[in-house]
């Protein structure tokens, strides 16, 4: 506990886009509740404590740490270990930390492939074939950059995690609800969910929150969304042939994308009890295909032009598939 008697709170971003921080800032006046009930010990976006200050804290002295972003390089992993040591409750906050998110799709490519692309694009002039070096000797001295890992890891692949908060980003009303719960726990008015639980989300699927009508209709083809002449504003997108990920995706966002006539892309991760997101989605898609003829089924499935992206868009790094050997060797608790 801190000098002012309030429990300590921390939030950190590893390899992330900053959207999680924006989502937290968007909880508005609830931020004041955080301030009233916690001593904000470490939160780079909002205040100025440093790694060194965190290192100096006693172990387990931070009550709650929200960790967002994936583990993309050595520095990310070092901070994950540091915050694990210092925190009583470590939350994998948002899709990147929980399951890898979009940057986890990089696990389909080797570091060499990534460098070959990024440092040799059509607008890049690189006659010397430079690529980033962890140590590089300039005339004035050596410059260091952190080691880029062969794959992006989820937080629980490098340290044990207490809770998971899904979403890209987690919706602000869900963040506010979690803040409220933790404050109640502090005041003895509620208890924490069991360790390992997913918090700040529903226990069902996006379809259950979706206002669109489902008629248990089956389809003869998948279509790409830009090919649809006029998207029916009332009817289930999947029944219109648009590959919507709602049936496999955890609810909690309020079905924002399908409500806006855009397919769910799965940012809230697998629904409760689903071990592997892609497998569940394949099952869901298979169930709407109206055919018993293997050739026709194949033809219909060819309407999904990018299976790995469709079925593991947000959770390749955290899925059972996990591309890349080093990910299998992760020492996390999951």
């Amino acid at each position: 506990m801190s000098t002012n008697g309030k429990p300590k709170f921390a939030m950190y971003w590893a390899a992330s886009c900053g959207g999680c921080e924006i989502a937290v800032l968007n909880i508005g006046e609830k931020i004041l509740d955080v301030d009233a009930n916690f001593d904000v010990a470490f939160w780079p976006v909002a205040m100025d404590a440093k790694y060194k200050d965190v290192e100096a804290m006693p172990d387990k002295s931070i009550l709650l740490t929200l960790f967002n972003g994936g583990i993309r390089n050595k520095e990310n992993e070092e901070i994950a270990h540091l915050l694990r040591h210092k925190s009583q409750i470590l939350v994998a906050f948002g899709s990147c930390a929980s399951e890898g998110c979009i940057p986890g799709l990089a696990n389909l490519s080797s570091t060499q492939d990534i460098y070959k692309t990024v440092y040799h694009t059509v607008s890049t002039e690189n006659p010397a074939n430079f690529e980033p070096q962890y140590e590089y000797e300039m005339p004035e001295g050596i410059l260091y950059t952190p080691e880029f890992y062969p794959v992006l890891k989820t937080l629980d692949q490098v340290v044990p995690v207490d809770y998971y908060m899904p979403g890209c980003p987690p919706e602000s009303h869900q963040i506010a609800a979690v803040v409220e719960l933790v404050i109640k726990v502090l005041h003895g008015e509620a208890t924490l969910p069991p360790a390992g639980a997913t918090i700040g989300a529903g226990v069902s699927t996006v379809c259950d929150d979706c206002p669109r009508q489902r008629n248990v209709k089956t389809i003869k083809e998948f279509v790409r969304i830009q090919e649809v002449n006029s998207i029916d504003p009332e009817l289930c997108l999947l029944e219109q042939g648009i590959p919507c990920n709602g049936p496999a995706t955890r609810n909690g966002c309020g079905a924002l994308c399908p409500t806006a006539s855009a397919q769910c892309i799965g940012c809230y991760g697998p629904a409760e009890g689903v071990l592997d997101y892609g497998s569940r989605l394949v099952t869901a898609f298979a169930s709407v295909i109206d055919s018993n003829d293997p050739d026709e089924i194949n033809r219909i499935l060819d309407g999904i032009p990018d299976p790995v992206g469709q079925f593991y868009r947000f959770n390749l790094a955290g899925s059972l598939m996990r591309a890349g050997k080093p990910a299998w060797q992760g020492n996390g608790s999951h």
Binding site: C17, L105, T117, I225
Partner: peptide
Amino acid sequence: QIPELRGFERFCVGRPVEEMPLLTNRICGV
């Protein structure tokens, strides 16, 4: 020095082009 890379230019290859407005959002949440 900017010491971080995520590699969007590589891993977006193979994805359908209509997904780019969704995938590249995740370059920056700001």
